[in-house]
């Protein structure tokens, strides 16, 4: 199969490796009179990555196509977790630690469970965020961004 999940991952990795090698080649000649240049090692690594990628793609193409698991529901929760972390980081400084972290923890608890008992989950989130604040700010002396300065 040319386009299953693993193949897509390998194609992306191959594309990144090729991009890396092209950038490495643009750094200049790999060997100069004084010895190896900063381009040599990246060229070596980029080439090795392309070789490994090609081997894996060939192996995957030669392998007999496996029977697709019947009606197995795919979970996309991990993608929502990535989105939640991304939004959290973007909001961390503008909204301050408490508001951004409270919403983030609440969102993750809901993502890892369900939409029931939301009030209890909100209270748990508040407790976690407060406890983490005490730990970071007071126990370990880390300055976290807060709205009141």
């Amino acid at each position: 199969m040319l386009l299953n999940r693993q193949m897509v991952f390998l194609y992306v990795t191959l594309a990144v490796s090729v991009g890396y090698l092209v950038t490495a080649l643009s750094l200049g000649a790999p060997i100069a009179e004084s010895g190896l240049t900063p381009a040599f090692f990246p060229i070596l690594v980029g080439s090795a990555a392309i070789v490994f990628c090609s081997i894996l793609i060939l192996q995957a193409l030669r392998a007999a196509p496996e029977a697709m698991p019947a009606a197995k529901l795919r979970s996309y929760t991990h993608l929502w977790v990535v989105v939640a972390i991304f939004v959290y980081i973007a909001a961390f400084k503008p909204l301050g630690y408490f508001l951004s972290s409270g919403l983030f923890v609440f969102a993750l608890i809901v993502l890892f469970s369900n939409f029931e008992k939301l009030l209890l989950k909100a209270i748990i989130s508040a407790v976690i965020v407060a406890a983490a604040f005490v730990m970071f700010q007071h126990l370990f002396g880390v300055r976290l961004p807060v709205l009141w300065g």
């Binding site: 977790v81 972390i85 959290y88 980081i89 973007a90 630690y97 972290s101 923890v105 993750l108 880390v142």
Partner: peptide, 29 residues
Amino acid sequence: DVLYAVISLLAVVGSYVATYSTFQMFMAL
């Protein structure tokens, strides 16, 4: 659910500690 929420919070805020920069948080992600 609570466990992984706590781990995520500690991980993301923890990556902020080194340089006080959200760049490191994005890098960790």
